[in-house]
């Protein structure tokens, strides 16, 4: 009981100081999934792509992609439409598998472990990769059940613990105050911005290591997108965030690391400061100056 009270007091808001952030991570592991450990590879970065080639039927979508994404940072993948940004993102959680006629070559290393091989437990992999999609996509159930969904499918049935998890993550995305009195209403009744935050809470509730955001703010109004951006900045203490974005200004605001793609190739990747201020490649310069989009 004591620990419960302690829990509720400490989760009252997502605090910005380092200490309580770590606390949240520690507590999270205790609420749900005590066996969870990040298995870290020798390299610092936890997602690496090596010689990644993807064909869909006859089309060559990703061409020899070599990447190493930094840990606990916001990585923005930018580039014109159809350059393979979303495909890259979907490869990381293997959602790409459901595409008809797909052929993947090369390696994607997650914590030093190749995730492309067929021997992978895909459900375990996907759980490490929280996905926030372009259009918020609440499941056809109540607000509470949406957040509890991931925990339930991974075997958490204890009502009290579920309540704790749901409260915790709704607070983490700043939604608790707004919805605490109507947790049992269908999630689709929330506003679009709220739905997107709900989807983020839902992804966080399964304890991912990464957050993959596919143009997560493009369907939102400016205020809601700002909220989401701020959330990402807070969350990067505990998660590695990889976001695809169409808005250069957004990338400027929040990116720590930038990957510029064009026609399925990585043209340039590096620290945000460097890429934005001193792009090495001619194409990057042109794209940043708005010569094409």
């Amino acid at each position: 009981m004591k620990s419960l009270i302690k829990y509720f007091t400490f989760t009252s808001e997502l605090r910005s100081d380092e200490q309580s952030e770590e606390n949240i991570l520690g507590r999270r592991q205790r609420i749900f999934r005590p066996d969870y450990k990040f298995v870290r590879g020798k390299d610092e970065s936890e997602i690496r792509a090596e010689g990644l080639n993807i064909h869909i039927k006859e089309r060559h979508i990703l061409k020899d992609v070599n990447l190493a994404l930094p840990d606990k940072k916001i990585t923005c993948v930018i580039g014109p439409s159809g350059c393979g940004k979303s495909t890259l993102l979907k490869t990381f959680n293997r959602l790409i598998d459901s595409v008809e006629g797909i052929r993947i070559e090369g390696k994607v290393l997650l914590n030093g472990e190749d995730i492309i091989g067929s021997g992978q437990d895909i459900t375990r992999l996907r759980r490490k990769m929280g996905l926030v999609s372009q259009k918020p996509c609440p499941l056809p159930m109540s607000i509470f059940e949406n957040v509890a969904y991931g925990c339930r499918i991974h075997g958490l049935a204890n009502k009290r613990k579920l309540k704790m998890v749901v409260k915790h993550y709704l607070e983490a995305v700043g939604l608790w105050e707004e919805v605490c009195d109507r947790l049992n209403t269908p999630a689709v009744r929330l506003s679009i911005g709220q739905q997107q935050r709900l989807c983020l809470a839902r992804s966080l509730a399964v304890e991912p290591q990464f957050i993959l955001a596919d143009e997560a703010t493009s369907a939102l109004d400016p205020i809601s997108s700002k909220t989401i951006e701020e959330l990402f900045v807070k969350l990067k203490r505990n998660y590695s965030i990889i976001m695809v974005t169409h808005t250069l200004r957004q990338a400027l605001r929040i990116a720590d690391y930038v990957v510029f793609m064009y026609m399925g190739e990585i043209i340039e990747a590096g620290d945000a400061q460097q890429v934005f201020n001193d792009p090495k490649h001619e194409l990057t310069k042109k794209y940043l100056s708005g010569a094409f989009s």
Partner: peptide, 19 residues
């Protein structure tokens, strides 16, 4: 998108179908 949302949380196909 609903299926993707469910499977990206680590649900199996059967869990996605059922729930």
């Amino acid at each position: 998108e609903l299926r993707d949302a469910s499977t990206s949380l680590g649900a199996t196909r059967w869990q996605t179908v059922k729930r």
